[in-house]
Structures are given as structure tokens and as C-alpha cells.
Design a protein around this nucleic acid. Structure first.
Lengths: 223, 223
DNA sequence: GGCCTTGTTGTGCAAGTGTATAAATAGCCT
DNA sequence: AGGCTATTTATACACTTGCACAACAAGGCC
């Protein structure tokens, strides 16, 4: 038989399902974040991303103008999720300002906010901030939003303690507290196993209270 | 004239100088760091790096087994320079422990340690730490070295103040102070123009002194 | 000066990149 | 059921990438 017309055509096309636009975009963004977290920006090729999302590379172009836009949207989604999680710890209406502040610190220094994958993503993207104004702006907005939340809680705490700091002192407190949380967050994400469970949160709360000049609640401190 | 034998051969080979091994390696590492800082890991190709170093791409293979090793060495050099600079601020023999601590904080929160390029490099590399054990170890060693320095100064400061904290409290102080410096460093590098000159250092010193329970030296605090 | 080592260049190559576009088919509408 | 359209696949293309290797020449050595 000179030319066998394949009875079982091996070049069968891939079966596929049509998903809604929202779902596909979200899947692609998630696959992008996974790829970046695992292999960095250099390893996140369109084909890798598409494979992870369960589609072929060409489809990406149907939802995003190009790779850059996909990465931008992925970063925006990441920042949005991070700040949302962080602020969520503040909604405790039936608690004293001081308890809310402590809960805020604790939430930010435990899972899921202390997380190696999220940190890897944050670092990878933020490393490009100085060269990419869009990234820099996205960060700045997230940072200022976060810091304003801190400042508001600090104002409440100090008011409850009969303190009345001026705007400058309040800003400095917020910057310092923000730095404490950020610094401990970095350390926890990078070397979480160096700290026992709850240790970072305890350190953070004590540092924040010291910054605000609050006496510890129930303590035998030092000795 | 059918075939003109080029009197001025256009395919003249590039002139070059032979440099010592140390110098070439250092130049290549520097070019690598520049490329990574400017375009990220994805934009740092062997050809880009070689161009910046004033050589051709092939030469890199003569000094490094592969790209990965070049990047590793570049990161090692970066970390070494950073920790060296940071610790250099501690060598002030004729100063009180407290002054040395303040000088340490100040040095770490001003140029050249507050620097967008260094931060970009740090973030880009550290973003790969969770996936690359070699990077993770390099960071951990640098971090612990830094923290031990902090812990030593803190011990001196507290001793001068007649305090005698136990090892656990000392460790916690060092972790917290480290976080304060790191957090303010990040903020300063990412958005230096949001802070007036010396402001970060002032915030840092106050926060550190609060953490250690030290009364400010000369102050009208708050109001 | 002439050679010889080796630092350096230039070229080639296979694999992978982002993008463009044609072909196919899934699933809604009537 | 049958057709239409937009989602999805598949292929093509020009370009870049890291690496391998052969040709070359810079500069020390005798």
C-alpha cells in the first residue's frame, strides 16, 4: 500500500471548551502569577503560562494585547489581593482601638500574608519598579493606602490613651509602624522556619506598642 | 573592475586588549549587575552584558562556566558589598554604644545604602530565593551576620544603661530593630522623594530607642 | 625578532521567544 | 437541526537566546 490514508488521524485537533471571558482572563492571570513565582519573569513565557492555564499560547493574544499587558494586569491583581487581605484584619467593630491594632499586626505577620510565594511575586515585580513607572505608581498607591489605614488606627489608639499628637508625629508613627510590619514580613517570608509560631507577631506588637509609648497590657517584661 | 579585492578590508577584526583575569571578571560582574538593575533578569542576556563590559559575548564563557554561575557570582558580590557597607558604619571606637547605634541606623538610612539601583538588584535576586537554595542560603548568611552585629550593639547599649536582658529578649530586640531598619530601607529606596532629607534616619532612631526603652536624649517629644 | 600561549573575536546552531494569522470547532440562536 | 460567530487551536515567522568552536592576534618569553 503506497500511501495509507490514516484511518485514525493522529493529527487530531485538541478538544477544548469555550469559557466565559471573565473566567479565562482570571485563569490566565493566575497561571501568570504561578509561572512568575516559580520561574521568575524570565521563565514566564507565553507558552509556559498557556500550558499552565490549560490552553495554547495563541489564545493569550485574544484576551491581552501583548505579554506586557498580561503582566501588568497580573501585578495589579496581586497588589489588590494583598492590600485587601491586609486591610481585612481591621474590620473588627466591637473591639478597642488597641485590640484592633494588635489584631492588624498579628494578621499581617501570619499566614496567609506571610507566604513565600507572595513574597517572591512581590520582590520580582517590585524589582522592576524603578525602571517601570507603571509598577512604581501601583506600588506607591498600595503603600500609601496601607499607611493611611495604619495612621487612622494609630490616631484612634492614641486618642483612647488621651494623647493628641500633631500631624507630623502621627505621620512618623505610621511610617515607623509600617516599617516594622514590612520588615518583619520580609524576614518571615524569607526565613519563616527561623521563628516559632506567633513569635513574629509578638515581636511586632511589642515593637509597635513601644513606638507609640504604650505600656504593655499584661507583662513581666525583661525581668 | 569585476571583483575589487577590498583595499580597505571592511571585515577587519575588532581590536582588543588583554586584561588580567581579575579585572575582566570584575568588569563582567559589574556589567551583569548593571544589566540586571536596568532590565531585570530577563533583559540581562549574555550579549547585553558583554556589550556593556566592552567585550563580545563569547568571552564570558572563558571566565564563567555558564550564565547561571555568572549571575551567582554577581549576586554574591552584591551581598558582600551591601553587608560590608552596612557594617562599616559601626567602626567608631571613640563613641558611646548609644552613639554608635544611632550612627548605624543613620548610615543605613541614607545614601549610598538607600539606593534605588541596589534595591532593584536586591529585590530581583531575592525574588528567586524561594526557588533557588543557593540564593536563599546567601541571603540567610548575610541576614544573620547583620542581625548579630545589631545584637552586639544592642547588648552594649543596654549594658551601659544598666539593663541585663536575657538572651531571648536580646534576640527579639535585634529582630525588631533589624525589621525597623529593613522596612525603612525599603520605603526609602522605593519612594525616597516622599521623605525629606534625614527624616527616615530620625524616624528610625526614635523607633529603635523606643524599642529599647531608652529615653530620648534631648527632646520635646510630641508636645 | 620570532614563537607560543591563551585571551578574545566571530560565526554557527538548535532551542525558545513574542507576535501574526489562517484554519477549525464549540455552543448559542433561531 | 442547521448555521453563525467568536473562541480556540495550530502553524509560520523573524528574532533572540545560551552555548560550542574555530580562527585570530596580543603580548610575554626566549
Amino acid at each position: 500500500m503506497p500511501d495509507a490514508t490514516d484511518p485514525a488521524p493522529m493529527n487530531a485537533r485538541r478538544k477544548f471548551r469555550r469559557e466565559g471571558e471573565g473566567r479565562r482572563r482570571q485563569d490566565l492571570i493566575e497561571a501568570t502569577l504561578d509561572s512568575v513565582a516559580e520561574h521568575g519573569l524570565q521563565g514566564a513565557s507565553l507558552r509556559t503560562i498557556a500550558l499552565r492555564a490549560g490552553v495554547t499560547a495563541g489564545l493569550i493574544r485574544h484576551y491581552f494585547p501583548g505579554k506586557e499587558e498580561l503582566l501588568q494586569e497580573a501585578y495589579t491583581a496581586l497588589v489588590g489581593r494583598m492590600t485587601e487581605q491586609a486591610k481585612a484584619a481591621l474590620v473588627m467593630d466591637d473591639a478597642s482601638p488597641r485590640q484592633r491594632l494588635a489584631a492588624f499586626v498579628t494578621a499581617n505577620l501570619n499566614a496567609p500574608i506571610i507566604d513565600a510565594r507572595v513574597f517572591s511575586l512581590w520582590a520580582t515585580f517590585i524589582g522592576r519598579a524603578s525602571a517601570d513607572p507603571a509598577l512604581a505608581r501601583a506600588h506607591r498607591e498600595g503603600y500609601l493606602g496601607f499607611r493611611n489605614e495604619v495612621e487612622a488606627v494609630v490616631a484612634e489608639v492614641l486618642a483612647a490613651e488621651q494623647h493628641k499628637p500633631d500631624a507630623g508625629a502621627l505621620r512618623h508613627h505610621a511610617i515607623a509602624i509600617n516599617a516594622i510590619i514590612d520588615g518583619l514580613w520580609v524576614e518571615g517570608c524569607l526565613a519563616g522556619e527561623m521563628f516559632s509560631s506567633g513569635e513574629l507577631a509578638a515581636i511586632g506588637i511589642k515593637a509597635v506598642e513601644a513606638e507609640l509609648g504604650l505600656a504593655p497590657l499584661e507583662q513581666f517584661q525583661e525581668k
